[in-house]
């Protein structure tokens, strides 16, 4: 999942500093996943618990509303589905193979 050619020693910042903050978002951990969260936005109450407890900053939110899952980074841990309130259950975990077969590569 690396990008481009690796630079030679003359072209790297001294002391192994990383000068581009947050560039890890270009590293995709989505391919670790064996299951993926599917959010039923009809049921979702936008309580934000899934977003609050996501280890991978992978629940996409905007203006206090849940919009979907960042599948480039979601590792499929299932915490979001687990913390979704029992009476709502808006998130289900779907086997990755099943999801791919259904052609839902991206939400």
């Amino acid at each position: 999942m690396s990008e481009g050619a690796k630079r030679g020693w003359r072209d790297l910042p001294a002391g192994a500093l990383i000068l581009e903050a947050g560039n890890a978002e270009r590293y995709f951990t989505g391919d670790w996943r064996t299951q993926r969260p599917v959010i039923d936005l009809q049921k979702c109450t936008h309580c934000m618990l899934c977003w609050f407890f996501c280890p991978d900053s992978a629940i996409r939110v905007s203006q206090a509303k849940v919009e979907g899952v960042d599948l480039d980074h979601c590792k499929g841990c299932g915490i979001c589905a687990a913390v979704c309130p029992v009476k709502i259950r808006a998130i289900s975990m779907v086997e990755e193979t099943q999801a791919l077969r259904a052609g839902k590569d991206r939400e």
Binding site: R7, G8, W9, L12, A14, G15, A16, I18, L19, A21
Partner: peptide, 20 residues
């Protein structure tokens, strides 16, 4: 300009940093 000091550098870059 937030900078990251002291990251984990694996075999693919460690030698270059030492060469510097």
């Amino acid at each position: 300009r937030p900078v990251t000091y002291g990251p984990l550098v694996l075999p693919d870059y460690y030698t270059e940093i030492k060469r510097q």
